[in-house]
Design a protein around this nucleic acid. Structure first.
Lengths: 206, 206
DNA sequence: GTCTATAGGTGGATAGAC
DNA sequence: GTCTATCCACCTATAGAC
């Protein structure tokens, strides 16, 4: 019951901390313009603060980048846990998984980690490590869903769950990447639907 | 027979012009680091010239970027024409098409246009136009191969050739994107093989 | 065509007052 | 925690000599 997360003076529910606000803005910029496509000045302007105050929260841009990926990863993990907690059917789980990507592109954003993957060679090493951890976690979750779906005969998985999981991530990332250049959400959806159909997952029913 | 492409004084075959050399270096940098991840200084250092001399050939970076995409597009068009001129079988054509991507990632590069697609929102408008033209051309060529393959029963194309062509491009781009973050060529290959298998294209024989 | 020199701007980052 | 002020490296781009 007792919730003293950090502040006594704030009375409203879950008042986001300064750092979270900064991450929110940075995340949006990073997903739309890439890590090399935004600056502290961009964030500062949006939040109406100075660059110096941003450096107080995130001393270097590498720090900011690492936190960005870690938070994105945590949010994704949370969403996957939510799926696991509320859905049993594997086909439905996959539809929900794809819906996570759909929500991202619907906001005219690229997957944060897909974006960073493009810039991989220019990223600080700590960011590269976090980035792979994100993809690893996605592939692991998907592989386990595919495996259970196959055992229960609710999915048609023709290759190894692990290999197919990797392909799924690649398809979804690539679909977002190209769809965004056309500003065409449907390009993403038809690729995603196709990838699901291949596994015996229909668009609507289980 | 007569070949007076530009120079009288050069006796060796096809001596690349200064501009082409610049584009070669810029292309490599762009494919590895992205358009926002390299500078005139990087090119100048590699070619041991000054930045100012680069601006003589490409006044602005937007000019350079447009020429980069246009040349890449032309090279791709040439490769596709070569495929059409030497191969009849549609399955074999698709394998050759995938091999084009394979050669790119084998050099530790991302597809130039896949890379630029990630940075789309930050690109000068003329580059955005050229970028879409590249993808359009790819999709058109693929759609025609798929269509003929279906008519001749050499390919298994379950949806519209156009829709499937788009998906193919997305899969290949996404496969490169993620594979590069792992420095793992096989991640690209298994996704590509999977996409081909779905069309009834085996790994080796026709 | 390539150079030197430099303009004019923006990048990430720090010191120190408040 | 946020500010002002500033540093310095780097960026794209231009002027003008050779």
């Amino acid at each position: 019951m007792t919730n003293h997360r950090q502040a006594v003076k704030s009375q409203s529910a879950a008042p986001k901390g300064r750092s979270e606000r900064i991450l929110d803005v940075a995340e949006q910029l990073a997903q739309r313009r890439g890590f090399n496509g935004f600056s502290y000045a961009d964030i500062a302007e949006e939040l109406a603060v100075t660059k110096a105050s941003l450096h107080y929260h995130f001393p270097s841009k590498a720090d900011l980048g690492v936190r960005l990926i870690a938070r994105y990863h945590e949010a994704f993990t949370g969403a996957l846990a939510e799926i696991d907690a509320t859905i049993d059917d594997e086909a439905a789980k996959l539809r929900r998984y794809v819906a996570l990507y759909d929500q991202v592109i619907a906001q005219d954003r690229m997957c944060l980690c897909g974006m960073f993957a493009a810039e991989y060679a220019t990223l600080p090493a700590p960011m590269q490590v976090e980035l792979r951890a994100f993809f690893d976690a996605n592939e692991t979750w998907l592989a386990s869903v595919l495996e259970r779906g196959r055992k229960s005969d609710r999915l048609t998985v023709r290759m190894s769950p692990n290999a197919h999981a990797r392909i799924l991530v690649q398809v979804l990332e690539g679909a977002m990447l190209v769809a965004r250049a056309y500003g065409d959400l449907d390009r993403f959806r038809s690729a995603a639907d196709h990838a699901l159909a291949e596994l015996g997952v229909g668009v609507k029913a289980s």
